[in-house]
Design a protein around this nucleic acid. Sequence first.
DNA 1: CATGAATGAGTCTTCATTCAT
DNA 2: CATGAATGAAGACTCATTCAT
Lengths: 238, 238, 238, 238
Amino acid sequence: MARTGKAAAEEAGARESERRKTILRAAIDVFAKKGYHGCRIADVAREAGVAYGLVYHYFKNKDELLQTVFDAGWGGFIARIREVVARDAHIVEKVHGVTQVAFEAYRVDPRGVKVIILEVARAPAGERINRQSAVGEAIQLANEMFERARDRGELRADLDPFVCAGMLFGALEMCLTALVLGLVDVQDEAMVERVQRQISDAFLGGILPTPSTGPAVDAEDAWKRDRSSTRSKTERRS
Amino acid sequence: MARTGKAAAEEAGARESERRKTILRAAIDVFAKKGYHGCRIADVAREAGVAYGLVYHYFKNKDELLQTVFDAGWGGFIARIREVVARDAHIVEKVHGVTQVAFEAYRVDPRGVKVIILEVARAPAGERINRQSAVGEAIQLANEMFERARDRGELRADLDPFVCAGMLFGALEMCLTALVLGLVDVQDEAMVERVQRQISDAFLGGILPTPSTGPAVDAEDAWKRDRSSTRSKTERRS
Amino acid sequence: MARTGKAAAEEAGARESERRKTILRAAIDVFAKKGYHGCRIADVAREAGVAYGLVYHYFKNKDELLQTVFDAGWGGFIARIREVVARDAHIVEKVHGVTQVAFEAYRVDPRGVKVIILEVARAPAGERINRQSAVGEAIQLANEMFERARDRGELRADLDPFVCAGMLFGALEMCLTALVLGLVDVQDEAMVERVQRQISDAFLGGILPTPSTGPAVDAEDAWKRDRSSTRSKTERRS
Amino acid sequence: MARTGKAAAEEAGARESERRKTILRAAIDVFAKKGYHGCRIADVAREAGVAYGLVYHYFKNKDELLQTVFDAGWGGFIARIREVVARDAHIVEKVHGVTQVAFEAYRVDPRGVKVIILEVARAPAGERINRQSAVGEAIQLANEMFERARDRGELRADLDPFVCAGMLFGALEMCLTALVLGLVDVQDEAMVERVQRQISDAFLGGILPTPSTGPAVDAEDAWKRDRSSTRSKTERRS
DNA sequence: CATGAATGAGTCTTCATTCAT
DNA sequence: CATGAATGAAGACTCATTCAT
């Protein structure tokens, strides 16, 4: 092939990739702003500054667009989590690592995280995206991590690894949700940093084996005394 | 009581209320099965075994249906949470109380919880339900709880109440999500009980003030040594 | 059930059927006027004087609409043909019967016949309607008819029943096409009658066993003499 | 001939013509396979192994593509028919000639014939191709042929030339349709030959003047006795 | 109260056609 | 000539909502 043709092709390829990225970026922004169901392809096209039909040149349909957003974002996230989990390190380091990955994702692309959390991470039942490959996948991964930690004696003996996994990701997700939804004024980077650190620390404080029995003892008694009364108050939801 | 007009009217009222409840119940089930956007009014009507248009007798529109599901479920939940928070008790008891409320809701109506969590708790931006009255409301409530606890010295000094709130609800929500999505085999009530207990304990272990410095110290060092390398690995999202 | 409810239901049922028929009729007319691909659902709705969406209340989609037109028209046609074929009668009577059925269909609903012939009878390959259940079905039917006639000695011995079938339906279809397309001025009913009679007669004249060898003999010689020259002229289609 | 510039130009021209033919051939095949409306330009391009836009270099638009297919195929067909009609020969020879032309077309390019028959010969009303230049044109041509035959006394006196024309082309078209649609196993060339011969013979048997009154007489009586009953059975189309 | 036929605005999706390279 | 990215008009289809009975 001639030099020109090749160069042109490369340039075209680059431009194509450019366009595709533009559209994907626009989709993330629009999804973050109006939600998946609340936006039209036209919105994405307008946001991307391209013609209506071009979206369909790069993506089969609206669903695939969301899928791609999901795959790119969540896939990268999971990959980094996996890398942390695979390390041969103490659970303390791993928890810090997971937390770091989650917050770094937020710092790099808060709107992307918003879409992942709000639209796909727990996509409503019956939707295209399999939740077991989203939340479930993450939990499974963390589950393995905590299982190994337990086997190495790095975990409180009375805790199920699966519960630890749920708690860690739950804490991360909910706190990021709070940031994402603007429930917390994220004036400065320091604040985010601070939240991140607290999550790691508090979580670890709860799951590491405690040499001394700790302070939870008497509290437990208070709880037991109160429990039945609380329970009886529960009614069925209409 | 008279058995005449008044009784008839009551009976009629009761029957109406019955219908309404039937439809609401059907809505919860259908939302849980196919998601809010994935179902049609016709689905709700079929599930309830009533005629198409009857849904509109009892509910202004599809949104109000979801709102009502939300209000009934979430409203009740929040009310019970509020009751727990209002108690003059140690934070340990309160945390146990909040956890108990959440799990009791799951035990009583798992599908209702599913809908709340998946459909409305963090309804995508631009949707009818104000998220600040969902997740935000709960977090705010817990925030106050932890603030008071901090003021009473029941909380680790280095923790923001708001982070504690996020962590608690995050842990609860994620673990319930796991149950709700069937990620965990919920063969028996004992398993649920066990998960509930672990969440309380682990969470409390992380947030209560520690008399002894605890075991986290050397781990922290390991973390600090590793941190920068982890950080540098973060790449941009496409 | 109360008298009123029943009457209302019946009335409603009748009205529904009425609407459905109206739409079907409109579809036939619009298909006849603009062709299946050339018309929009909106055209059908407008022609029927109903709202857009109502078409979808009675028919799953555009295709089903065409299918229904086809089933109603062609199904009835085939049924009548089948009745004629089943008669225990001389092939002469049967051919007259088949011809009569075809022309009667045209007299009763020329536009319906037009749609059947132009749009579905030989729907282009890859289309929804299986042609083998259209043209093929008719030919198969006639084929059986002529097979029996041959067995009874009512057919020229040198003719394949299948060819007879093709010739009969071909003649009918082409002549009806001519009428339908307005290639012939159909001023009066007498003209149509006349065409019908001629088709039967000429066709029968060609397929009935000839006592005397007839006049075709020397013609055959002329043909043979000419044949090779004609053939050599054929070129390939680009 | 020089081997320089002129040859190069010719070669270029030939190559262009080659491309054009490739595309046209691809169009015929794709139309035959999926129908005109059922295929996209992309399908044609893929089949031809050329780029998307190249089709538009050689053909103004999709319609022109079909038009060209039609013109090439039908035009050639009509031209040959015209040649046969123009001969100064007995109607017997001419009918054999017309039949021969039709079948030869099928032998040379069955898919081309398929497209002509299914897609354009009776293009639905409102379509680009004027039907009077397709079926109508052929019928008109044959009409003249039979008119002349009638004037020369070569035709049964009671037949309209126009009906003869319709019957001949109808028989040809329907039998070719049967071949084209695979309704008949066309294992061998002999079968096709056989069908061709039978059509000519049977058709001629029906339209040539019969010296003796022939065998149709009593059949006619049976028909007349039966007719009214058949007629009364006609019902309305839903 | 109940019913479900009727309405029609809102969107997705397709695909012929153009155009810059 | 060739390519295929870009355009956008056209139209099928959905489904929330209304309304007459």
